[in-house]
Design a binder for these strands. Structure first.
Length: 863
RNA sequence: GGGCUCGUGGUCUAGCUGGUUAUGACGUCGCCUUGACAUGGCGGAGGUCCUGAGUUCGAAUCUCAGCGAGCCCA
């Protein structure tokens, strides 16, 4: 017999999920600008449109979607926008590759157009994946940073900060990638280990150790530690630089490490960050030996025109030949590299644009944000404390937001556009008025463009309705979800910009998610061949299974290993739920009074458990602990509902008894609540069930407000479940089938229990409850201590007390004395500090006896 | 070198403010085709809770040190 006449036996994941995805309407997820509900705006991460929505994105978006759906059910006016952070080098590189050109082969605007075309194609691919994962995105709040509507705001934000003095241009050493031919920010520098040679050579009589001999031409001083006896009295002397012949001073500085190399270091402009520090501290000269392409300049003649690599070899060869190279040592070092292309960065002094970093302001704002997990705040703090230079925001690239300024050709005055004229491209557009200083009409547009983080760091302003000035109408956003890998960039810069432009923190809360690792425990990468694409998972097990993996795979915030096991377990859970649901629907279809009250013990017990589950899941969702939420739901559905409740109440459902209606009501309510609890995590499955149950969409329903207390039902129900479990074990141990008939069963409990016959039907036995005492011989076999009472009450005497109690004669264990003797001292026996363990012996009758706590069960041998 | 996180049966994992059968999943072994489900049910085996010291009547849980892993930064 089919349990339900309406529902198919198998849950067809692909069919159900795609059916609902084509049924749901985008409008259902739109933020309502005139709603009276409290707002919940999520400042979602705008991914880089690579064309692949990878599994790390998927995890992040699962979290966001759980929250968005949950908050909607809790009555919030939710905004779940979708941005695309388009600008940047990878797209330029891809375009160059695909078209077989370099950026300078075509006009700038043509190149940008190619980049835009590629980006739009990629966005389309990623949108498709996102839809298949069932995210409740508000597509009416999509933003694309490369389009005029958005980069107009980026330019407006630039001008506002420029006018406020928070942006300035200056010649200053910057990190420079010679392959990308652009300046980059510290946040874009990664450090990679590498083995290099430390070269010792004779520098006009002083031994110097350096890893960068090619920078000899850029040497501007030699530094030693002031306490270093070897160089006592050398300060102020001048040395002649080998090969190049210019003079440099000897200086003293405590930052020199006397233990490293020879204790004397040559300062070049610039070998590393420390050189910049010394250069500033001691007002040294500037000698540029390497240019933007990484090629030696005229300063480095006769090595001019060589790459720095070739120059290094040539200089070392020349040093060796002239006998000044003394020896070389292997050295492990960590070298700064460009995060996009892995090329070692150079530090070049360049005219660039900078954003002022007001560290204390930023940290004040960061402290007003609630961080989950809390320790992620420390990362922000550490990063802010280590910032030494301002944020370099200019880039010498093409596909990016143009810096909207011109310079007067005649007098050099900087001219900026009016806000209403934005967006502009200063290399194409012209100022509308002559130069205010000299009246000149010839201008040069700024060719530099902005760091892409200048685009994405105003996302919080954009989604809260910013139009380029003033305070956004919905500011601040409620939540920023993001990965911990971009705390030093996106989170840091967003706080910086919100503080600078609006004067306050951008969001109330930030939820930081972990990284997804491959099944082997390592970061997913092509070289390890451990990449799993979301499409692969969805194709086999569906979006809901992937979402369950995201919810349950790890505690929110910690890194999560991908595991096919978890996905399979997730899909099995859905199968189990589907069978539960079919079973329930089958019984509801057979007819049941929907208004019938829930009266029977087992049914009321189920409600108690359901009520506890709702409380637990709600608390977990409030704290973004999706793993706890899912675990509580699974535990309830699989163990409490399926294994315990249904197995016990099943027999009653097949009767015509009036108590059947009570069970049907309990099941109807339970399925209703369960669907709502599941809705944020597995929206397709929950929708399919709920529609069959209630004929409406579960996603338009409120979060369940189910609260039920019934102490008696809880006590008696627990007793019933425990007793039946024990009798199942009894049958199992006897080698009986679980549905095999059992003889006369008497359950002696301390309180009268009315189970409506459930125990008898579940056990296929003639079962009766009694408060009497079985006529059995009772034997005290030991004692159970209640440490939660004994520990705090007796402290150091606890051990002695327990020994004293164990020594008591059996009859005193059943009727405890007022005091016991511990170390010769009479101490009072705390109430409820122990209970005797009681065993029962058969007294004449041929019965088996089971004891569980204070319940005794006797089982007759034959029916 | 500094900071952060973590170290629990074969594998992955829960265990937040300390309390005596340490959770679950996968795997494994045995029994059961019971009127929702064999993608199932019931039961079992399997753990020095990384190591050492300390605090405590009591430590997987708190403190310190060590070892190891990952991430971030110098």
């Amino acid at each position: 017999m089919s349990p339900s006449h309406q529902l198919p036996k198998n849950y067809d994941i692909e069919e159900v999920e795609t059916r609902w995805q084509s049924t749901w309407r985008d409008e259902e997820n739109y933020f309502d600008p005139v709603s009276s509900k409290p707002q919940f705006i999520i400042d979602t991460p705008p991914p880089y449109p690579t064309g692949n929505f990878h599994i790390g994105n998927a995890l992040n978006w699962c979290y966001i979607d759980f929250i968005a759906r949950y908050k909607r059910m809790r009555g919030y006016n939710v905004m779940f926008p979708q941005g695309w952070d388009c600008h940047g080098l990878p797209t330029e590189v891809k375009v160059e590759e695909t078209h077989g050109i370099t950026k300078n082969d075509v006009p700038r605007e043509k190149f940008r157009e190619m980049c835009r075309d590629l980006t739009l194609t990629n966005i389309e691919k990623m949108r498709a994946t996102m839809r298949r994962l069932g995210f409740s995105t508000d597509w009416s709040h999509e933003y694309i940073t490369m389009l005029p509507d958005y980069y107009r705001k980026t330019q407006a934000s630039f001008l506002q900060m420029l006018k406020a003095g928070d942006i300035y241009q200056s010649e200053h050493p910057v990190n420079f990638c010679t392959r990308c031919e652009t300046a980059i920010a510290f946040a874009e520098v990664n450090y990679a280990p590498r083995t290099t040679k430390l070269n010792y050579f004779d520098f006009d009589g002083v031994e110097i150790a350096t890893t960068r001999p090619e920078l000899l031409a850029a040497c501007v001083a030699v530094a030693v530690h002031p306490d270093d006896e070897r160089y006592r009295g050398m300060k102020g002397k001048r040395l002649t630089v080998p090969i190049f012949g210019h003079d440099v001073p000897i200086i003293e500085d405590v930052a020199v490490d006397p233990e490293f190399g020879s204790g004397a270091v040559m300062i070049c402009t610039f070998g590393d960050k420390t050189d910049v520090y010394w250069w500033k501290q001691h007002s040294l000269d500037l000698r540029k030996a390497i240019d933007r392409q990484g090629v030696m300049t005229a300063t480095a003649a006769p090595y001019e025109g060589m790459t720095s690599e070739a120059c290094r070899k040539a200089i070392l060869a020349d040093m060796e030949e002239s006998g000044i190279l003394k020896r070389q040592e292997e050295l492990e070092q960590r070298v700064g590299t460009c995060w996009r292309c892995k090329t070692p960065i150079e530090i070049l002094s360049e005219r660039q644009w900078f954003v002022r970093v007001h560290r204390d302001d930023i940290m004040d704002a960061a402290r007003r944000v609630s961080w989950t997990p809390e320790h992620m705040f420390t990362r922000m703090e550490n990063w802010a404390e280590s910032m030494e230079w301002d944020w370099c925001v200019s880039r010498q690239r093409i596909f990016a937001t143009p810096i909207p300024v011109w310079f007067c050709t005649a007098c050099g005055e900087m001219v900026i556009p009016a806000e209403e004229d934005l967006p502009i491209d200063p290399t194409v557009d012209k100022p509308k008025a002559p130069c205010p200083k000299c009246g000149g009409s010839e201008f040069t547009g700024e060719k530099d463009v902005l760091d892409t983080w200048m685009d994405s760091s105003i996302s919080a302003l954009h989604v809260t309705g910013w139009d380029g000035t003033g305070k956004p109408p919905y500011f601040p956003a409620q939540l920023r979800p993001q990965g911990h890998d971009i705390i030093r960039t996106w989170a840091f810069y967003t706080i910086l910009r919100a503080k600078a432009l609006v004067g306050s923190h951008p969001w109330d809360e930030i939820l930081v998610n972990g990284m997804v690792l491959g099944e082997d425990g390592f970061k997913m990468s092509k070289s390890r061949n451990n990449i799993i694409a979301p499409e692969e998972i969805v194709g086999q097990y569906g979006a809901d299974a992937l979402r369950q993996w995201g919810a349950g795979g790890a505690a929110t915030g910690s890194d999560i290993m991908f595991s096919w096991n978890d996905v399979v377990a997730a899909s099995r859970f859905q199968t189990k739920l589907w069978n539960i649901f079919r079973f329930v629907m089958g019984h509801l279809e057979k007819g049941a009074d929907p208004e019938a009250p829930v009266t029977e013990l087992t049914d009321r017990w189920l409600f108690v458990r359901l009520s506890e589950t709702v409380a637990e899941v709600t608390a977990a969702m409030e704290g973004y602990q999706f793993d706890r939420a899912l675990r509580a739901i699974r535990e309830f559905a699989w163990n409490t509902l399926a294994d315990d409740y249904i197995e016990i109440a099943k027999g009653r459902l097949y009767t015509d008894d009036s108590s059947r209606d009570s069970a049907c009501s309990a099941l109807r309510t339970t399925m209703d609540v369960l669907c709502r609890l599941l809705a944020p995590i597995i929206p397709h499955f929950a929708e399919e069930c709920y529609h069959n149950l209630a004929g409406r969409s579960v996603h338009a329903e409120a979060w369940p407000d189910f609260s039920y207390t019934d102490d008696e039902a809880r006590r008696h129900g627990d007793l019933l479940v425990k007793t039946i479990a024990e009798l199942r074990r009894y049958k199992h141990d006897k080698g009986m089938a679980l549905n095999a008939p059992l003889g006369h069963v008497m359950i002696y409990a301390p309180e009268p229990v009315d189970d409506a016959g459930d125990a008898g039907r579940a056990l296929n036995a003639d079962a009766h409850w009694s408060t009497g005492t079985p006529r059995l011989e009772e034997v005290v076999s030991g004692v159970d201590f209640n440490m939660a009472v004994i520990g705090p009450t007796l402290r150091k005497q606890a051990r002695g007390f327990m020994q004293a109690v164990e020594a008591l004669p059996p009859e005193l264990l059943k009727n405890p004395p007022a005091t016991v003797t511990v170390d010769g001292e009479e101490i009072p026996v705390p109430p409820a500090s122990f209970t005797p363990k009681v065993a029962y012996r058969v007294a004449g009758e041929e019965v088996d006896v089971l004891t569980l706590g204070d319940v005794v069960v006797t089982i007759g041998h034959q029916p």
